[in-house]
Amino acid sequence: MEWARLIDKVTSKSLWMMMYCTGCGAIEMPPTVTSRWDVERFGIMPMATPRQADIFLITGYLTKKTLKRVIYVYEQMPEPKYVIAHGSCPIDGGIYYDSYNTINRLDLFIPVDLYIQGCMPRAEAVMDALLKLREMVEKGEANAWQKYHENFEYYDKNQKALFGENWRAVMTL
């Protein structure tokens, strides 16, 4: 148990992000990672591929088309993995709540650790969320990824309801 705590403590000092950037929120990323706010001083770095990442930052609205990719990428990330929903869109649809093609709630499809409210949230808010996540990881509270195992039927049902029964056929590799 002690060992696990120690690992959690170290892990919280090194969190790498994969950023999903087709929503508006992408514009807040440059100030967050470059010299304005410099998240790297907390050991948080943007990474290029899901295999290397710990945090999945969903920066904005999701459509039916992009959600598939998000789920696919999420499943490619090694565990433990943390999802941050950034902005109103992934929380409740935001200003696109009545669009024919956007997804209103991300957490129906994959488990989410943290939500950043706002349209759009500023870099300070992103920093705040990242530090909060850091704290949660250190305390061993950021366990949403386990829900994906435990409640897979629930997520799978929602995914199937949206994309149709056979949507995973594309992903049979």
Binding site: P50, R51, Q76, V170, L173
Partner: peptide, 15 residues
Amino acid sequence: WISPRNTWYAGEPPK
């Protein structure tokens, strides 16, 4: 062990 085609392709599952 995963299939060799299970790779990252900018989010797209390889068809």
